[in-house]
Amino acid sequence: MEFRALRLLTLLGLLFVEPGFGQRGDMDVGEWLREKAELLNAFGDKLKDVRALEARLNATVDQLTGQKAEVDRLREENEGSTRAPRVAFSASLADFGEIYKGPCTDKTLIYKRVFSNTGDGYDQSTGVFTAPVCGLYFFSFSTYGYNTHVTGAILMKNGARQVSTYDGLAADGSDGAGNAVALQLVAGDAVHMELWDGGRVFDNLNGHTTFSGFLVFPA
């Protein structure tokens, strides 16, 4: 309705302002009005096209805004993951020659040959890994020994037994075993390996008796 009123007013304006309109004896007034109406119709169609284009542009802007928000979210997640602490270590018992450990009073195994120690959680002077941050940690270990003694070791968390390997006296010449566990630790928790009472393990540069761990994810 408003558009028709605007068209009518425009036509009336053209009637009053058209130069020399009173002298157009050779032009049919009806034809002239039809031409002006066609121009107005064409203008209305163009206006519709502009509005449709504007709607599409607004939709595109909304889509790009949503995509930018998603990119920002992913960037924040990635920055958060890169800021997460990196903790991992791996070591074997002997750093040169051959070593027999046990039987002994101090049953703590001190792994001297350190392959990696990202985050400096493992202390090669004591054999103890201390958790630098709270989180879920994964530990694995292997033991090797001969049939003259019990062979195996126990993974200890804050002085409490968790998991172990064990092989008693047997007719075979040697025995090897391994085990693993995932532990929830808080910062400062201590994890180390101990021999069984009366036990013994063997290692050389082939790395038979090992101890490894890493942070799966922080708490």
Score class of each variant (00 low, 15 high):
residue 125 S to M: 02
residue 100 Y to C: 02
residue 205 L to K: 07
residue 4 R to G: 04
residue 126 T to C: 00
residue 215 L to M: 04
residue 8 L to Y: 06
residue 85 P to W: 03
residue 145 G to R: 09
residue 73 R to M: 04
residue 166 Y to I: 15
residue 28 D to F: 03
residue 151 T to F: 06
residue 141 F to M: 06
residue 177 A to L: 13
residue 132 P to Y: 03
residue 10 T to G: 05
residue 214 F to N: 09
residue 97 G to K: 08
residue 64 L to H: 09
residue 90 S to H: 01
residue 209 T to E: 10
residue 104 C to G: 08
residue 73 R to L: 06
residue 8 L to E: 12
residue 188 G to Q: 11
residue 40 L to D: 03
residue 165 T to C: 12
residue 57 L to Y: 06
residue 191 V to R: 12
residue 162 Q to Y: 10
residue 86 R to G: 05
residue 7 R to A: 13
residue 30 G to Y: 02
residue 215 L to N: 05
residue 74 L to V: 06
residue 145 G to S: 09
residue 114 V to I: 01
residue 39 L to N: 09
residue 176 G to F: 14
residue 2 E to Q: 13
residue 108 T to C: 00
residue 85 P to Q: 03
residue 137 Y to M: 05
residue 202 F to K: 07
residue 2 E to M: 10
residue 83 R to F: 03
residue 152 G to P: 06
residue 155 L to W: 04
residue 194 E to Y: 13
residue 76 E to M: 06
residue 179 N to P: 09
residue 47 L to R: 10
residue 174 S to W: 12
residue 68 K to F: 07
residue 80 G to W: 01
residue 96 F to E: 08
residue 39 L to M: 09
residue 65 T to Y: 11
residue 15 L to P: 00
residue 200 R to C: 12
residue 100 Y to D: 12
residue 105 T to N: 02
residue 202 F to W: 15
residue 75 R to G: 04
residue 141 F to A: 04
residue 189 D to R: 13
residue 123 D to K: 01
residue 33 L to W: 07
residue 40 L to G: 02
residue 109 L to Q: 01
residue 56 R to Y: 04
residue 6 L to R: 13
residue 116 S to V: 05
residue 47 L to G: 10
residue 107 K to D: 01
residue 135 G to T: 00
residue 39 L to D: 10
residue 183 L to A: 13
residue 98 E to D: 02
residue 55 A to V: 08
residue 12 L to I: 13
residue 23 Q to N: 10
residue 15 L to M: 08
residue 13 G to E: 01
residue 64 L to Q: 11
residue 193 M to F: 13
residue 206 N to Q: 15
residue 117 N to Y: 02
residue 83 R to C: 01
residue 212 S to P: 07
residue 61 V to L: 13
residue 154 I to L: 14
residue 188 G to L: 10
residue 48 K to L: 11
residue 29 V to M: 06
residue 197 D to I: 11
residue 101 K to Q: 01
residue 148 T to E: 10
residue 104 C to N: 03
residue 108 T to W: 00
residue 121 G to A: 04
residue 115 F to G: 02
residue 144 Y to D: 08
residue 123 D to I: 01
residue 126 T to N: 00
residue 153 A to F: 04
residue 78 N to E: 12
residue 159 G to H: 10
residue 202 F to S: 09
residue 170 A to K: 11
residue 174 S to E: 15
residue 167 D to H: 15
residue 120 D to F: 00
residue 189 D to M: 14
residue 67 Q to V: 04
residue 23 Q to L: 09
residue 12 L to Q: 13
residue 180 A to D: 12
residue 194 E to A: 13
residue 181 V to Q: 15
residue 146 Y to I: 06
residue 192 H to Q: 10
